[in-house]
């Protein structure tokens, strides 16, 4: 009889109490892992504290006025970030709407037996490649491709349907719509990938049961598969929203940096992240306090959205099993 581990041990039996070195390695690894967890966690705490402390003077000085103020005028020391909050939420929600629609459609197309599995895998890889394109490239593409491409359409809309508040201004160049469209493409891979996982996690027997009851392909998808995977798909949308809220470079290039609150899709706007990126290099001490405040607000918004998304996904996966 072969004893494959015999050369490792001195006795005939391969059972023995752990040697001191094994115990040492085990302990060391546990310590290292614990240290890692503590480091990562304290990093978040330090980050929030650091920004919070730097923002404190401004919070004490102007309280909620910064959040509700609409004027950003360094000369008069007036700092209001409401237009930026509005722009952040507005552009992200439009991006979520567009990106969500295409992302979920793509996930259905790639998981519900429309394509050969091997082909589907290739498509999936291509969609995920979108996530590898640097933000600044998206920004340039937005400036030189998206804006000139949509301008004739937006001019037409403004001329014929200008009475609708969404179309009430002319698109000059940078603006909310081009920014939101580029943002939609940037969050597409996240939404498509997580939605695909959610749809794949639906047990095969659920689908078979649906077919067994006489549903058509589309009935099975829309009435059984998608509702079953709904929590996971919803989670993918929340994660996509989280990414959209924090996106900086492409938006700084495309949003137009204009501190106004407008319903119009074609008007320039501002976002928190873009505002932070563009204002920091030149900011004086009082401006930095307010920018830290704005960073805190942005961090809170994205943190809440991301925690919500992770919770929903965890819940969905638990429900599946």
């Amino acid at each position: 009889m072969k004893k494959p581990f015999l050369h490792n041990v001195e006795t005939d039996s391969i059972c023995q109490p752990p040697s001191p070195s094994v115990i040492f390695v085990d302990r060391a690894f546990r310590m290292l892992a614990r240290l890692g967890v503590i480091l990562v966690f304290s990093l978040i705490v330090v980050l929030v504290l650091e920004i919070g402390i730097k923002a404190l003077p401004s919070i004490q000085k102007s309280g909620l006025d910064v959040i509700t103020g609409t004027v950003w005028d360094v000369g008069q020391q007036k700092f209001g970030i409401l237009p930026a909050i509005w722009g952040t939420l507005y552009s992200s929600l439009i991006a979520l709407f567009v990106g969500g629609f295409f992302g979920i459609s793509m996930a259905i197309f790639l998981t519900q037996d429309f394509l050969h599995p091997r082909l589907a895998a290739i498509f999936r890889a291509i969609v995920e490649l979108l996530a590898a394109i640097p933000s600044v490239v998206y920004g340039l593409w937005g400036i030189f491709v998206v804006i000139p491409a949509i301008r004739p359409l937006t001019d037409e809309l403004n001329e014929s349907l200008g009475w609708i508040p969404f179309f009430s201004s002319t698109l000059s160049g940078p603006g909310l719509l081009p920014a939101a469209l580029v943002l939609a493409i940037m969050i597409l891979p996240t939404i498509a990938a997580v939605s695909q996982d959610a749809l794949r996690a639906v047990p095969l027997r659920t689908k078979q049961a649906a077919y067994g009851m006489g549903t058509t392909h589309w009935e099975a998808i829309l009435k059984v598969m998608v509702p079953t995977a709904a929590t996971g798909i919803f989670g993918s949308l929340v994660l996509g929203l989280g990414r959209a809220l924090g996106e900086t470079m492409a938006l700084a290039m495309l949003i137009g940096n204009s501190n106004q609150i407008s319903l119009s899709l074609f008007a320039p706007a501002n976002t928190l992240a873009a505002m932070l990126a563009l204002n920091f290099p030149e900011a004086g001490p009082s401006e930095i306090e307010v920018l830290m405040y704005a960073a805190l607000v942005l961090m809170l918004i994205t943190l809440v959205v991301n925690v919500l998304g992770s919770m929903i996904i965890t819940y969905a996966q638990r429900g599946m099993k």
């Binding site: 004027v71 005028d73 000369g75 237009p83 204009s258 501190n259 563009l278 290099p281 030149e282």
Partner: peptide, 15 residues
């Protein structure tokens, strides 16, 4: 007069 002045709210800012 100033190195920074107030502008109409729909102005676009560039560095």
């Amino acid at each position: 007069i100033g190195k920074r002045v107030s502008w109409p709210e729909n102005a676009m800012f560039a560095p």
